[in-house]
Amino acid sequence: MDQKKRMNLMNRKTATKLLLLNWSRFQNITVRLEGSTLFTGVNGSGKSTILDAMTYLLTGNTQFNKAAKDRDRTVVAYVRGDTKSNGKDRYLRKDGVVSYIAMEFWSPVEDMYLVVGVCIESASESDVSSS
């Protein structure tokens, strides 16, 4: 392997953890990412929710789960914990809500961990209409 390819491989950062606080139905969860991580589970268990959080954090893309054509998936709906029911109990989180998504990466070149994160605030349930 030539020097340039070796340096490119060395420069790669490896995702090691994902933290979700107040994201959809996840109150506080840390997911360890080791090697090739496979998300499995029944429908509605949170697989797409985890991938949507990672996509939003890393790219800012808010076109969540396009294949499902689920138009209720918005950043504010994720932060508030949209249950998709009607009435006063539609959202798990009331009043002001702060949500965090963070990922930890290992960098072999720097020989250290790096953390990338985003903080999302929703002042009130009325924020939902502007999402």
Rank of each mutant, 00 (worst) to 15 (best):
L21W: 05
K69T: 07
N43I: 12
Q3V: 08
M112P: 00
K13A: 06
V31G: 09
K47L: 05
R12F: 10
V128H: 06
Q27F: 06
N43C: 06
G60A: 04
Y91E: 06
K17M: 09
G81R: 07
S130N: 09
I29T: 15
N43S: 14
W23Y: 14
S107E: 07
M54G: 04
D2W: 00
G117D: 08
R32D: 15
K4W: 09
L18M: 05
N22K: 10
G87A: 04
N11D: 11
V118W: 00
N22L: 04
Y56W: 10
G60K: 03
F39G: 09
V42M: 05
S124R: 03
F64A: 04
S36R: 08
L21V: 12
T55H: 01
K5R: 14
S24C: 13
M103V: 02
G87H: 07
V79R: 05
V75I: 11
K17A: 14
L20H: 11
N43R: 09
A77F: 04
T37A: 07
N28C: 13
M7P: 02
Y91T: 01
S129T: 09
R32L: 12
D89R: 06
N11Q: 12
D82I: 02
G60D: 04
V115P: 06
E34M: 08
R73C: 00
S122A: 15
T40H: 12
M10L: 15
G35P: 05
S122H: 03
R32Q: 14
I120Y: 01
T59V: 03
N28H: 15
K66H: 03
L19F: 14
L38V: 15
F39E: 07
N8W: 10
K88M: 04
T30H: 09
K13F: 01
L19K: 13
S107W: 03
A68F: 05
L33V: 14
C119Y: 01
N22G: 08
D82G: 08
V97H: 10
M7C: 06
V31Y: 09
S24I: 00
R80Y: 12
L20C: 11
V109N: 05
C119R: 14
G46H: 08
P108R: 03
R32E: 15
S122K: 02
E104D: 12
M10C: 08
S122M: 02
D95R: 07
K4E: 14
S107H: 03
R25L: 13
L19T: 06
Y78P: 02
L33A: 11
S130F: 05
L9D: 11
T55S: 01
N86T: 14
V75W: 03
D70H: 04
Y100G: 00
R71N: 10
R12M: 15
V115S: 14
W23F: 13
R93G: 07
I120R: 02
K94G: 04
K66D: 04
A123R: 11
D111C: 05
K84Q: 12
R6F: 12
L114Q: 13
T74L: 01
S36F: 13
S45A: 14
G41C: 10
S126C: 00
S124G: 07
F105R: 02
V97R: 04
K88A: 12
G81H: 11
E121N: 11
G81I: 03
Q63H: 08
N43L: 07
Y91F: 15
V79H: 08
D95V: 00
M103A: 06
A102D: 05
K66R: 08
D127F: 01
G60V: 01
K4S: 13
A102L: 03
T62R: 05
T83P: 02
Q3C: 04
T83R: 14
V115R: 15
L58C: 06
